[in-house]
Simulated assay, not measured.
Amino acid sequence: MAKKKQTGSTPATVALTKAGAEFTVHAYDHDPAAASYGEEAAEALGVDPGRVFKTLVAEVDGALTVAIVPVSGALDLKALAAAAGGKKAVLADPAHAERTTGYVRGGISPLGQRKRLPTVLDSSAAGRPTVCVSAGRRGLEVELAPTVLAELTGAVVAPIARDGR
């Protein structure tokens, strides 16, 4: 049964509810001046930044691909390309990512996207009971088991993060 805490639904929370997934929604006051959406979320929620994951959209050999990595790290584009079965990865144009996913930058959720994209979840998520990802808008995170996240997004789990931002 879905567990919810506060605020309205987003396509991500609707997808989780429809799937019967167990999740918790965490809301916080988003500061538009925040330098990093993910670090802001971790601090506002009082959660280890290694448990809060950011959703990045990249192009792997020209095809949009979602990468989910901890906010305490950075995306390794070579590792993403390899995990997605490609040769080269570059970050996608933000406007193209927004149009394709249906979410705004800083609020892109790996769940409930307008078009389901190939997804790679960093392997560091596997050792955690729960992780937090964007629930589909700035100031809203969803906490769920990484196995549920991988299953609902069809994600490949691979080491795609490196230290640093």
Rank of each mutant, 00 (worst) to 15 (best):
1 M>F: 10
2 A>W: 15
3 K>R: 13
6 Q>Y: 04
7 T>L: 12
7 T>C: 13
8 G>V: 11
8 G>D: 13
9 S>P: 13
10 T>W: 03
11 P>N: 00
12 A>V: 04
12 A>W: 03
15 A>D: 00
16 L>R: 03
18 K>A: 14
18 K>M: 04
19 A>D: 06
20 G>Q: 02
21 A>Q: 05
22 E>L: 15
22 E>K: 15
22 E>C: 10
22 E>W: 11
23 F>V: 05
23 F>I: 05
24 T>I: 14
24 T>G: 11
25 V>D: 02
25 V>W: 00
25 V>H: 00
27 A>I: 10
28 Y>P: 14
28 Y>Q: 10
28 Y>K: 08
31 D>S: 04
32 P>R: 07
35 A>S: 13
37 Y>H: 15
39 E>D: 04
42 A>C: 14
42 A>G: 14
42 A>L: 13
46 G>E: 12
48 D>E: 12
51 R>H: 09
52 V>F: 00
54 K>C: 08
54 K>A: 06
55 T>E: 14
55 T>K: 09
56 L>A: 15
56 L>W: 09
57 V>S: 13
58 A>Q: 02
59 E>K: 15
61 D>T: 10
62 G>E: 07
64 L>C: 08
65 T>V: 14
66 V>H: 06
70 P>Y: 03
71 V>K: 02
72 S>A: 15
73 G>F: 05
73 G>T: 09
73 G>W: 03
73 G>P: 07
76 D>W: 01
77 L>P: 04
78 K>Y: 06
78 K>P: 05
79 A>C: 09
79 A>F: 06
79 A>W: 05
80 L>W: 02
81 A>K: 06
83 A>G: 05
86 G>H: 05
87 K>T: 14
87 K>D: 15
89 A>R: 01
89 A>L: 00
90 V>D: 11
95 A>F: 10
95 A>V: 12
99 R>A: 15
100 T>Q: 05
100 T>F: 05
101 T>R: 11
102 G>H: 09
102 G>P: 11
102 G>D: 09
103 Y>R: 08
107 G>Y: 03
108 I>D: 07
108 I>G: 07
109 S>F: 02
110 P>R: 03
110 P>T: 01
112 G>E: 01
114 R>I: 00
114 R>G: 00
114 R>E: 04
116 R>S: 14
125 A>I: 12
128 R>M: 12
128 R>G: 06
130 T>L: 08
131 V>P: 05
133 V>K: 06
136 G>K: 01
136 G>V: 06
137 R>P: 02
141 E>V: 10
141 E>L: 07
141 E>N: 08
143 E>L: 01
144 L>M: 15
147 T>K: 15
147 T>D: 12
148 V>N: 05
150 A>R: 03
151 E>G: 10
152 L>K: 04
155 A>Y: 02
155 A>Q: 02
156 V>N: 08
156 V>I: 13
157 V>L: 08
157 V>F: 09
158 A>M: 13
159 P>I: 03
159 P>N: 02
161 A>E: 01
162 R>Y: 08
163 D>H: 11
164 G>M: 03
165 R>M: 14
